[in-house]
Design a protein around this nucleic acid. Sequence first.
DNA 1: CTAAAGCATACTACCAAGTATGTTTTAAGG
DNA 2: CCTTAAAACATACTTGGTAGTATGCTTTAG
Lengths: 216, 216
Amino acid sequence: MALDSPAKAPNSRRTILDAAAACFARQGFAQTSIDDIARAIGATKGKIYHHFRSKGELLSAVRKSSILLTSAQVEPVFLANQAPRARFHSMAMAHVRAMIEQLPYHRVVIENLRKGDIGPSTPHERALMQEIRTLQRGYEDLFRTVITQGMQNGAFHSQPVSVALHSVLMLLNAPVFWYHPRQGETAADRVAIARQIADMALAALTPRAEPKDPLP
Amino acid sequence: MALDSPAKAPNSRRTILDAAAACFARQGFAQTSIDDIARAIGATKGKIYHHFRSKGELLSAVRKSSILLTSAQVEPVFLANQAPRARFHSMAMAHVRAMIEQLPYHRVVIENLRKGDIGPSTPHERALMQEIRTLQRGYEDLFRTVITQGMQNGAFHSQPVSVALHSVLMLLNAPVFWYHPRQGETAADRVAIARQIADMALAALTPRAEPKDPLP
DNA sequence: CTAAAGCATACTACCAAGTATGTTTTAAGG
DNA sequence: CCTTAAAACATACTTGGTAGTATGCTTTAG
């Protein structure tokens, strides 16, 4: 019996995770009881505690899924051989599209960003959180790399990287706070939103020509 | 005995609010007990429940304070008669400076943005939340106004206002997630950070000249 | 056929919000 | 000053909700 191997994992885990993400996203983590999640999938606590050791581990699993989902969308774009501006723009679009397409997962993560730094947890959970932090760092480094290269390149405005990185990432994450699918919204609409935000993010990094207010 | 008048209010309320904001910001709202807050000011539950009816009202009070504090910094700048770009930039700087100067208050608000939309609450609390939403709307409208004018003016890139507004506001709010005062940090350092972020926000709204990646 | 995985049910333990009530301090008036 | 009532707080208690557990039943796989 492998402890960690998700080898033969049926989709029970995934079903639970989806429900958990949905509940956490709708009511918040603390306001969601395990029974809520169980009821959402027509089951009971037993099923959930059979697959996850604790509520915290459930949250950790959602967080990990979120990062993996986003990485799966963005990393291929990152690996394509493009110049900094084009590369950043396509990465940004992929990121935003991921945000709005799996909204529950990502909303949970953003709203519980600082939950990883504190709180008691079993040694087993500490390890999980460490792994998540590593994944998170790795993902951020994709953008950090592109931004740094762009600055050296002259493609981006030269400025403190850390502040720029965090600011731009938050800009790309912003949809989790306000986005909600409109009536009769098409995939093209979502792409348009993603493009607008990606454009703004790119502009935020662009060297400025010191434009002035138009004279009256 | 006036029910709502903060007329003769000593600084007991403010003391409690400061402690609550600090605790909520450090441990999160749900992870903070009333006793935690009481202990932080060397008192007991009794004192807190004498000034606030419930934990939720405490959170609401923090939220309200946050908005009022920010407004107090930004509104004067808004009222000064400047062209859109200059006006937006000074508003943005004031906003960011408020974020990092009263970090606990604003962090609490951002991390509990969606708590206002849900949750049970007494009729009295519903009213309070309604008032807060009104204040929030009013504050956002300051930026909405400037952005809209700038777009008509040609000072800003023309694009859907709502998305642009939310995106830029989140960019300005971002410091609450990552900022923490560094060793020997001066006021000038904080201004520099605020300027960098304000510059990025302004750039995000600026009309683009379709810059290309520099050729290798 | 049997053992383990998968899940349901019933129960326990505990924490923290809220309350009831008692005690001290303040402020005003005689 | 002394009285007294209200405000300002402390202490002790009640209670609901929920995480986690113990246990038993059912399905699947070998």
